[in-house]
């Protein structure tokens, strides 16, 4: 479970989050949609402690021991734990170009011996539908879609309890978009992880989300199931829905 309680965040005179409260239920895929600049990424960064809220609480439950972590008051050790629990997939793959695919995926597995490390890397590559023949290649030697998959494999390798995706399909062509969306859905179901996806893409949300939260003007404009959002009469949501390709 992840919970935001009345979270406020401003940058100078710009009020980005004006008291945002919501909860992500175990095992669900929650999409946060909204226009550019409405605080979607700020929400994600607040969750992993990259930004500190001005007020309010951000709580992550560690499912291993049932303890709640109050992100805003964690010390460095606590933040490291929170970031281990929450695996983040960035908008761009952010792979280390000088390392091989194996080394990239194994990056967060330093505690494992070589044999277990290799086993885990292969397991994760399989989960993202990549073959072991790319293990010795470097990121620039594989396609962008494959790099996206490798970055997801790297994120799931240490076994996070929550997966956070920042604009996972932005700038991708329709075929790659659908493939990545399908993968997010598949991983959430296979690994039984809770997933939070920040996106502009209403089409992707309608396809795989359990619930959708729409941020606007610093607050929550709507939150509900795919059907509830699909039937919303809120002008912004209607506008977003009209953008879903109907070809």
């Amino acid at each position: 479970m992840i919970r935001f309680e009345n979270v406020v965040k401003s940058f100078g005179s710009k009020h980005i989050l004006k008291g945002v409260s919501f909860e992500i239920m175990p095992g669900e895929i929650l999409f946060i949609l909204g226009r550019s600049g409405t605080g979607k990424s700020v929400t994600l960064k607040t969750l992993v402690g990259l930004l500190k809220p001005d007020s309010g609480n951000v709580i992550i439950r560690n499912q291993k021991d049932g303890k709640d972590l109050q992100v805003q008051s964690l010390d460095q050790e606590g933040l490291n734990l929170a970031r281990k629990i929450c695996g983040m997939v960035f908008q761009h793959p952010a792979l280390l170009d000088s390392l091989t695919i194996f080394e990239n995926v194994a990056f967060g597995l330093r505690d494992l011996n070589e044999e277990d490390k290799r086993k885990r890397v292969l397991e994760c590559l399989k989960l993202v539908h990549l073959d072991e023949n790319i293990l010795n290649l470097k990121p620039p030697e594989i396609s962008y879609g494959m790099q996206k998959r490798v970055s997801i494999a790297r994120t799931i390798a240490p076994g996070p309890q929550y997966l956070l995706f920042d604009e996972p399909t932005t700038g991708l062509d329709p075929i790659t978009t659908n493939a990545i969306n399908e993968l997010i859905n598949e991983l959430a179901r296979t690994l039984n992880v809770t997933s939070l996806v920040v996106s502009h893409d209403m089409g992707c949300a309608l396809d795989i989300a359990d619930r959708i939260l729409v941020l606007d003007n610093g607050g929550i404009l709507a939150m509900g199931s795919v059907n509830e959002i699909r039937n919303s009469k809120e002008p912004l949501i209607v506008d977003f829905l009209s953008e879903v390709l109907s070809t």
């Binding site: 790319i134 290649l137 030697e141 062509d173 329709p174 075929i175 659908n178």
Partner: peptide, 20 residues
């Protein structure tokens, strides 16, 4: 396939390039 973003079809997206 491209316009509808379909998985099945003549276009492939993720292949190790021949070069490598």
């Amino acid at each position: 396939q491209f316009i509808k973003g379909l998985k099945e079809g003549p276009l492939t997206t993720e292949d190790v390039p021949e070069t490598h």
